[in-house]
Simulated assay, not measured.
Amino acid sequence: MDLGACVSANQQKEPPFFNKVSKHFFVVDENMGHHLLVNAEKAAEATSAFFGWMLETNATSELHQPLFDFVTQKTKECFVLRECQEQWRVGSSELNLAM
């Protein structure tokens, strides 16, 4: 299968990030919460990029809408996770100023 013509030249060189090992069920401290937010954002970006690539190389019209919807959802997920991290940083800096 020669998909070289369908794939854009600016592909990421690093392998996608997927956290395959679950360490804890509950978030036990702020550091762990921040780490989980960062990992969730990386995973959302990786799956968004993957399904974006799938959408770009798709040749089946029946798959266009589900793939498009999934890419849209993952893009929104990335936005929400970035917003959560920004709020976390703002809250942390306000706590540090109050001390």
Rank of each mutant, 00 (worst) to 15 (best):
M1R: 02
L3Q: 05
G4W: 02
C6S: 13
V7E: 04
V7Y: 09
S8Q: 11
A9C: 11
N10Y: 11
Q11E: 13
K13F: 05
E14Y: 02
P15D: 15
P15S: 15
P16N: 09
V21K: 15
V21E: 15
S22K: 14
S22I: 09
K23Y: 15
K23S: 11
H24N: 15
H24Y: 14
F25T: 10
F25C: 07
F26D: 15
F26N: 10
D29G: 11
D29P: 01
E30W: 01
E30S: 13
N31G: 10
N31D: 10
H35G: 09
H35D: 13
L36K: 12
L36Q: 10
L37S: 10
L37W: 02
V38Y: 02
V38A: 14
N39E: 10
A40S: 14
A40I: 07
K42H: 10
A43Y: 02
A46L: 09
A46E: 05
A46H: 02
S48N: 14
A49W: 13
A49L: 15
A49K: 11
A49R: 15
A49D: 11
F50M: 15
F50T: 12
F51H: 13
G52I: 03
M54Y: 10
M54Q: 08
L55P: 06
L55N: 05
E56Y: 05
T57Y: 04
N58H: 06
A59H: 13
L63M: 12
H64D: 08
Q65C: 00
Q65H: 09
Q65L: 06
P66M: 01
F68R: 00
F68I: 02
D69V: 01
D69S: 05
D69Q: 08
D69G: 00
F70V: 01
F70P: 00
F70R: 03
V71G: 00
V71H: 00
Q73Y: 11
Q73R: 03
Q73V: 00
T75Q: 08
K76H: 07
E77K: 00
E77M: 04
E77G: 01
F79L: 11
F79Y: 04
V80I: 07
L81V: 05
R82G: 08
Q85T: 03
Q85G: 01
Q85S: 05
E86M: 14
E86P: 00
Q87E: 11
V90H: 08
G91W: 06
G91P: 03
G91E: 05
S92G: 05
S93I: 04
E94N: 07
E94D: 05
L95Y: 00
L95C: 01
N96T: 06
L97W: 00
A98Q: 04
M99E: 01
